[in-house]
Design a protein around this nucleic acid. Structure first.
Lengths: 207, 207
DNA sequence: CCTACCGATCGGTAGG
DNA sequence: CCTACCGATCGGTAGG
């Protein structure tokens, strides 16, 4: 049961756009990876741009679908943040090349479609903003002068995952997600002085 | 006192490579930004590749120079990590476009020079590994199953800074660095249970 | 720094 | 899916 031609083209494009970047990948590169001559591609696709758009939108949708459920559930925000981080890492681990294209090549989309994709990226960012702001309001997360900086810290950490994650590496995506959530939630410090004395008896007992 | 021609070309290339990417920037784009005809560029540079290499190596060196002093000082590792994060953010904030080219366009270098640049990137990563491993050994940072994951978390967060930092934004590079160091060192949780009971009297007093 | 140009390669199409 | 091809653009050079 061979893949149909359009699917073959789509997969070759993901790999090549990811390895060399969109502008450095020629339609001739894709056609020879698929095993047809360049002109034959255009029976199955309309243009190089449309191929990139299909890839990038599919990539973003996978992340949106995975994290959307965590954005608004009633669970405690720290648990939602941990699950959102794990969901992101799982999508990244299952779609490394797709993620590389999605995160790096969207800049080469035409003006109109690029604006739409930027909108989807902003929606994704808003999911994490919502979780973190909920957590601060509920007293579960630390109050911050600029909560958006925490969002950017989390997203930067997550955007970098497809660059180094390997399915054959020492940790599964689930384990990596947990460890990254530990870094974000608990920090790297071994001990942290309590924000305020818990009660006077405990303070006296420690003196 | 006008900039000399080579400096003009270098600056225009940083801006254009950062905005459009290396493969999508033509020498004709650069020449018209500088105000000369395409062929005239080659009096001052040897090739498009050499121009990219000059930019990327200069970019990496700025980061190496800024963080190297923190890699080996005798100060506590948590302070060194905070200062390293702040040093990185300061370089990023002072060189946003240079950083964008350095972080994204090195993939378009020739095989040989790309290998050298990857070596410099690994050196940079080793600075952070050293600080975090020192911290764990000294009992200042939490023991971790995979300390390298913490390094990748920090570098991912930092690599993302040039994408969103603005000198005219609400926080200076110094403040952003402190806030990001807070996220990494202390985490986002408001309270954290102690790793182990401190003493029995305190536990009893809380019961 | 300009004029004039080179061979190579690009995305895409007409016609079968 | 192939043959054959189009106009545009590319990095770079010779000669002045």
């Amino acid at each position: 049961m061979p893949l149909d031609a359009a699917e073959n083209i789509y997969r070759a494009a993901i790999r090549l756009f990811g390895e060399r970047g969109y502008p450095s990948t020629s339609m001739r590169d894709i056609s020879s990876a698929v095993g047809v001559l360049p002109g034959s591609l255009y029976t199955h696709i309309t243009s190089k741009q449309a191929l990139l758009l299909q890839i990038v939108e599919n990539g973003i949708q996978k992340y949106l679908d995975a994290v959307r459920p965590l954005a608004t559930t009633a669970e405690p925000a720290d648990i939602r943040l941990r699950e959102a981080i794990k969901a992101h890492v799982k999508v990244a681990g299952d779609n490394i090349q797709l993620s590389l294209v999605t995160f790096h090549q969207w800049k080469h989309l035409d003006d109109e479609t690029r604006r739409r994709v930027v909108g989807l990226r902003n929606t994704y960012q808003a999911y994490f903003s919502r979780i973190i702001e909920d957590g601060i309001e509920a007293g579960i997360l630390r109050p911050m002068v600029h909560p958006s900086l925490a969002v950017l810290a989390v997203l930067g950490m997550l955007n970098w995952v497809p660059e180094w994650f390997s399915p054959s590496g020492p940790a599964t995506a689930d384990e990596v997600g947990d460890h990254l959530a530990d870094v974000i939630l608990e920090g790297l410090l071994e001990v942290r002085p309590p924000a305020a004395p818990i009660d006077d008896a405990a303070a006296a007992a420690n003196a």
